[in-house]
Amino acid sequence: MIDSLNSAQIAALFALTPAIDQVGIHERIGRIQTRSIKGTAKLQGLRMALSMIDLTTLEGKDTLGKVRQLCFKAQHLHDQATGLPTVAAVCVYPTMVAEAKKALVSSNIKVASVSTAFPAGQAPFEVKKLDTLYAVDNGADEIDMVISRGRFLAGDYQFVYDEIAAIKALCGQARLKVIFETGELDTLDQIRKMSDLAIAAGADFIKTSTGKIQPAATFPVVLTMLGAIKDHFDKTGQMIGMKPAGGISSAKLALQHLLLVKEVLGEAWLTNEWYRFGASSLANDLLLQYQKQVTGKYQSATYFSID
């Protein structure tokens, strides 16, 4: 287990956190957004994006039936099309993990569970630990925890750090994704700070948002977080995964995100081991664009399974 940090150590950690050049970030994003990917590169990109999806259902009205349907979709994205991958994982609430594991038993698709009183994270620490243990015991391959945003904004970095480190210790073999809920962190500097804190506390992945709050995975936010991953890699040689979630619902956006990660981190991150999209409706748009590319005709959602 990673040891707790005292305030001096936290100060030392943040001393290495650079200030974010917001204007520079926006300019770089602007260039990414004017690029267009066509032909075979587009097909490859669409397939890659599909293979990186954490197909997600996180609603109060979720049922076991809905989860089974989602797991079926995860394995059969569009059977009429050949050469399609499956998604990387399905992402559900802890109570749905056992059902999802059962439904995906014959596939390589991982089951990710949100945890620590998702989405608000406003629960006692003991409850958060139980929440995580429940998911892990039911077979979750990945844990998506939320941070205590209130504590972070109040400057209680030590609390946030300890919480992440403690949850990481409970995960065992499961990989830990740390959700910042960037829409509540307000500034890019805060987001960079949180990235450095989460990485130091043992996050395997850093993830932008819960999907419940807007704005979510915007380009400036993602670029800021990728910068933290890059700096950490340059310093230690250790790779950290990235998962933008919320608001990426079109194939065009997904491809631009892939461009960004390739430019900032390099091709090593272009696999679902290190990069994920948290999404529900993105899969269908990728499929529509894929079929458009194959058939030459613009497609209709009518002919694709519901998401």
Binding site: G296, K297, Y298, Q299, S300, A301, T302, Y303
Partner: peptide
Amino acid sequence: PTLAGHMD
């Protein structure tokens, strides 16, 4: 042609 072929 694009409009007529559009599946939607």
